[in-house]
Amino acid sequence: TQSIHIEKSDTAADTYGFSLSSVEEDGIRRLYVNSVKETGLASKKGLKAGDEILEINNRAADALNSSMLKDFLSQPSLGLLVRT
């Protein structure tokens, strides 16, 4: 696993530069990185398409609903625990 911390203040970007997809496997919801913008903040921090997001801001990914995800992604900083 890899811990990634991203700050939007690093650039004038209003997004982190990646998209997520939610997949249900064996009754457990998993979050995967769908795509990463080549010039985006997430790419600079090493996030890659296909990575599994285990935690966002110290909250287990399978416990997050879509409104919580939207809220986290609109925050000025983001902490991710990722399995590559």
Rank of each mutant, 00 (worst) to 15 (best):
T1R: 06
T1E: 08
S3Y: 15
I4Q: 07
I4L: 06
I4T: 02
I4V: 05
I4E: 01
H5F: 15
H5A: 04
I6T: 03
I6P: 04
E7Q: 10
E7T: 13
E7L: 06
E7M: 09
D10L: 06
T11I: 07
T11H: 09
T11R: 12
T11K: 11
A12Y: 06
A12Q: 13
A12V: 12
A13K: 14
A13F: 06
D14Q: 10
D14I: 08
T15L: 03
T15E: 14
Y16S: 05
F18E: 08
L20F: 15
S21M: 14
S21V: 10
S21Q: 15
S21E: 11
S22Q: 13
S22C: 12
V23G: 04
V23E: 08
E24R: 09
E24P: 06
E24K: 11
E24S: 09
E24F: 12
E24D: 13
E25D: 10
E25K: 12
E25I: 13
E25V: 11
E25A: 08
D26Q: 11
G27C: 03
I28E: 08
I28F: 11
I28H: 14
I28W: 06
R29M: 07
R29S: 09
R29D: 05
R29C: 05
R30P: 00
R30Y: 04
R30A: 03
R30G: 02
L31E: 02
L31Q: 00
L31R: 02
Y32L: 08
V33S: 03
V33P: 00
S35V: 07
S35G: 08
S35D: 13
V36L: 03
V36D: 06
K37R: 11
K37D: 15
K37C: 15
E38A: 13
E38T: 10
E38P: 13
T39F: 13
T39K: 12
T39C: 13
G40V: 05
G40I: 01
L41A: 12
L41P: 10
A42V: 04
A42K: 01
S43H: 11
S43C: 12
K44E: 09
K44T: 10
K44Y: 09
K45T: 08
L47E: 02
L47N: 00
L47C: 00
K48G: 01
K48T: 07
A49C: 11
A49V: 14
A49W: 05
G50V: 00
D51W: 07
D51M: 15
E52I: 03
E52R: 02
I53G: 01
I53P: 03
L54Q: 03
E55F: 06
I56N: 04
I56D: 04
I56M: 12
N57A: 00
N57K: 03
N57H: 03
N58L: 01
R59T: 15
A60V: 08
A60H: 07
D62F: 06
A63T: 14
A63Y: 06
A63E: 14
N65Y: 04
S66M: 14
S66E: 14
S66V: 04
S66T: 14
S67V: 08
S67Q: 11
M68E: 14
M68I: 13
L69C: 12
L69T: 06
K70V: 10
K70W: 06
D71R: 11
F72Q: 11
F72I: 14
S74L: 07
S74G: 09
S74F: 12
Q75D: 07
P76T: 10
S77L: 07
S77Y: 06
L78Q: 02
L78N: 07
G79P: 03
G79M: 13
L81C: 07
L81T: 13
L81K: 15
L81W: 02
V82T: 13
V82K: 03
R83M: 09
R83A: 14
T84S: 15
